Computed example of a mutant assay.
Amino acid sequence: MAGTREKRSYEQQCGLAIALDLVGERWTLLIIRELLVRPRRYRELLDALPGIGTNLLAERLRGLEEAGLVTRLDPDRRTAGYALTEQGAALRATVVSLARFGLDVAGRQSIPAHAAARASWSVLAVEAMTLGAHPEGVDETYEFTVDDEVFALVVEGDEVQVRPGAATGPVLSVQTDAATFLEIGTGHLDPIEALLGGRVTTTGPVEAVTRCLRLLGLAPARIMSPRAA
Rank of each mutant, 00 (worst) to 15 (best):
G53N: 09
A152K: 03
G198W: 10
T180G: 02
H114A: 12
L124W: 02
L30C: 06
L215S: 00
S173M: 10
A133L: 04
V206E: 13
T130K: 00
H134Q: 14
A208Y: 02
A67L: 07
G81S: 07
G88T: 02
E136N: 09
A106H: 05
P170I: 01
T203V: 11
T201W: 09
V138M: 11
A17D: 09
T201K: 13
I18H: 12
D104F: 04
V70R: 02
V123L: 08
I111Q: 08
G198Q: 14
A221Q: 10
L172K: 01
Q12F: 13
G107T: 13
L57W: 03
S110M: 11
T168G: 10
T141M: 10
F181H: 03
F181E: 01
V126H: 03
A166R: 14
S120V: 07
T180M: 07
G51C: 09
P191M: 05
A83E: 10
R100D: 07
V155E: 03
A67M: 08
A128Y: 01
T94G: 05
A219M: 12
V96T: 11
L49F: 07
S173E: 13
V162M: 08
E66F: 07
E136Q: 11
E159S: 13
A125I: 07
P220R: 13
G68L: 14
Q175E: 10
T79H: 08
G107N: 14
A117F: 12
V105I: 15
I111L: 15
R77V: 07
P112K: 14
L124D: 00
A133Y: 02
P170D: 05
T85H: 07
Y142P: 00
F144T: 01
L213P: 00
L196N: 08
R77S: 10
A229C: 10
D104C: 06
T4M: 12
V95C: 13
L45K: 03
A89G: 10
D74R: 01
H114N: 10
A48S: 14
E11A: 12
R43D: 12
D76L: 01
A116S: 10
L195H: 05
A178C: 09
R92I: 02
T180A: 07
A128R: 02
V155K: 00
T79S: 15
G3R: 14
A90Q: 13
S110Q: 14
A167S: 06
L172G: 01
A194S: 11
A2C: 08
A125E: 04
I192C: 06
R222S: 13
Y142G: 01
L91R: 00
R199K: 15
L196V: 15
P205V: 06
D190C: 11
G107K: 12
G165I: 08
G53M: 08
P205A: 14
E65C: 08
T176W: 04
D190A: 09
A93F: 04
Q87A: 15
G217H: 03
